[in-house]
């Protein structure tokens, strides 16, 4: 056994090794923006509790061109995040059996994406209706 000397390779930069890992890291990184936006909305709730003037200021801040550009970027980031999570969703749930057949993963992903699209569209319609 004297010559037994195993070699351990470094994990440095592991996520650049495979495109699959890059996609994974992108999914994780976009989660940070989801949290960030939750905090922005939370700030709105706090401002609302401080009265109409405070809430008005918060709203004005959102109407700033930089903020609008940020929202457009966020929209794209959230779309990627949604897509990447629904893509992994079939792996996170027990087999779904419909009519004696196992529902394929792609169908679960498609259903999830459809649900997200419908929910988003319904929400936009609701806000548009409120505004009108």
């Amino acid at each position: 056994m004297a010559l037994r000397r195993t070699y351990v390779r470094s994990m440095d930069g592991w996520w650049r090794r495979d495109p699959f890992f890059i996609h994974y890291m992108a999914r994780e990184a976009t989660a940070v923006f989801v949290v960030a936006y939750a905090l922005i909305l939370l700030a709105g709730v706090i401002r609302l509790s401080q009265g109409e003037a405070a809430f008005g200021e918060w709203l004005e801040g959102l109407a700033n061109p930089w903020s609008i550009a940020f929202h457009v970027a966020l929209c794209a980031i959230f779309a990627y995040h949604t897509w990447s999570w629904f893509r992994i969703m079939p792996k996170t749930m027990p087999p779904v059996v419909v009519g004696g057949r196992r529902l394929p993963g792609a169908a679960i992903t498609a259903l999830g994406l459809a649900a997200a699209a419908i929910a988003s569209a319904a929400f936009v319609a609701f806000v548009a209706w409120l505004a009108s």
């Binding site: 992994i88 079939p90 792996k91 996170t92 749930m93 027990p94």
Partner: peptide
């Protein structure tokens, strides 16, 4: 599908 086994066991 080992990822499925792992994640079902998280639940």
């Amino acid at each position: 599908d080992p990822a499925n086994a792992v994640n079902v066991n998280k639940t």
